[in-house]
């Protein structure tokens, strides 16, 4: 049994079932309508049921067929990269583009084994921030606050 629990097919199936069931649950009150006037709930219901069925098929397959194991999860890169991206969104409004970019780069770079603070990389970072400010904010007029609300802008 523990072997099945390591298989990719098992977890993919579980993911399909979970997402399909969630979609069905959220969409349960959408009107189904008739065949002439199909309601907003028609497609979601059909699709979520189909996804759940495929999920069961995948789980079933993991019991009967040889399959690869999922393997170790790379927690450090996963958390740092996803976290850095989300943090960029938070900091953009409060501290502005410059700080948000620096944090995004430093946090995401920390996910690499080769990460260390060095002069060359720091210059690169400053250049990157300057490039973004000039091209996106000044050149293209993307409304990114260079300095955020905490600076009283």
């Amino acid at each position: 049994m523990s072997y099945v629990l390591q298989k990719k097919d098992f977890w993919a199936g579980a993911l399909y079932i979970a997402l399909g069931a969630a979609a069905f649950w959220i969409g349960r009150d959408y009107p189904m309508g008739s065949s002439v006037r199909m309601g907003a709930g028609y497609f979601p219901a059909v699709l979520s049921v189909a996804l759940v069925l495929i999920g069961f098929a995948s789980v079933a397959r993991s019991f009967f067929q040889e399959g690869e194991a999922v393997g170790a999860i790379a927690w450090k890169p996963l958390l740092l990269i996803v976290g850095a991206t989300a943090l960029f969104g938070v900091l953009l409004q409060t501290l502005g583009l410059a700080v948000a970019l620096i944090v995004l780069v430093l946090v995401s770079a920390a996910a690499s084994q080769h990460f260390r603070i060095e002069l060359k990389a720091s210059i690169g970072l400053v250049l990157l921030v300057a490039f973004c400010a000039l091209v996106f904010v000044k050149g293209l007029g993307v409304p990114l606050p260079l300095l955020g609300s905490w600076f009283g802008e």
Binding site: I81, A84, T85, L101, L104, V105, S108, A109, S112, Q113, H114, F115, A121, G124, L128, C132
Partner: peptide, 9 residues
């Protein structure tokens, strides 16, 4: 390791 933070930006 230099390239990917820039891509992310």
């Amino acid at each position: 390791h230099f390239l990917y933070p820039a891509i992310l930006v």
